[in-house]
């Protein structure tokens, strides 16, 4: 078989296998309502905590529920994020409700950061949503309580591993 023929057959196969998911992805987006992406500026301003969440159902008194403080380093900017863990329809989720700097300045937010999945012996398996170089990653992680006021979140994601300790806000 000539090299030219091999080349064109291969290009055809690649175009088909790459084209199908791109076309279906575009069709899916077209069928959904318009999504307006909110730019996620990390510049710390003087805005206080974001508007409160709607009242959400609390099914039990899990020690995870409540407000937690975690440090972050985004492009060299050190700061804190305040995460509120709530329970809705039996599932616990964590949203960042504010970013803060060392001086106490804060900016409101309402970003999903943690989804609890399943309770295990070693803690809870969860999905930690984080950003790296403008790309959002959903990282499987383990969340466990070290004490009533300390929570440990750990992950090992293809070479990226970290252990974060969050402290409970009063």
């Amino acid at each position: 078989m000539s090299n030219t023929k091999l080349f064109f057959i291969s290009i055809g196969i690649i175009a088909l296998l790459a084209g199908v998911p791109h076309i279906t992805a575009n069709l899916s987006y077209a069928n959904t309502t318009e999504i307006v992406e909110t730019p996620k500026e990390k510049i710390i301003s003087e805005v206080t905590e974001a508007e409160p969440f709607e009242e959400e159902e609390t099914i039990n008194e899990s020690p995870f529920l409540g407000k937690w403080r975690a440090s972050f380093n985004y492009d060299g900017t050190m700061g804190y994020m305040i995460v509120r863990i709530t329970s809705k329809k039996g599932k616990m989720v964590g949203h960042i409700i504010a970013y803060e700097d060392d001086l106490g300045n804060s900016e409101g937010a309402k970003d999903l950061v943690l989804q609890f999945k399943k309770e295990k012996k070693s803690g809870w398996s969860a999905i930690y949503t984080t950003e790296y170089e403008n790309e959002t990653y959903q990282i499987p992680c383990t969340v466990k309580l070290l004490s009533p006021s300390q929570l440990q979140l750990s992950y090992d994601y293809y070479g990226f591993s970290d252990i974060e300790t969050w402290t409970k806000e009063k």
């Binding site: 690649i14 296998l17 790459a18 998911p21 791109h22 279906t24």
Partner: peptide, 20 residues
């Protein structure tokens, strides 16, 4: 190219491309 969503079509096509 634009990043593809994670769904069955993407997974199947990715496996076939990996095979190719």
């Amino acid at each position: 190219l634009p990043h593809l969503p994670l769904n069955w079509i993407t997974i199947i096509c990715c496996i076939l491309l990996a095979d190719f």
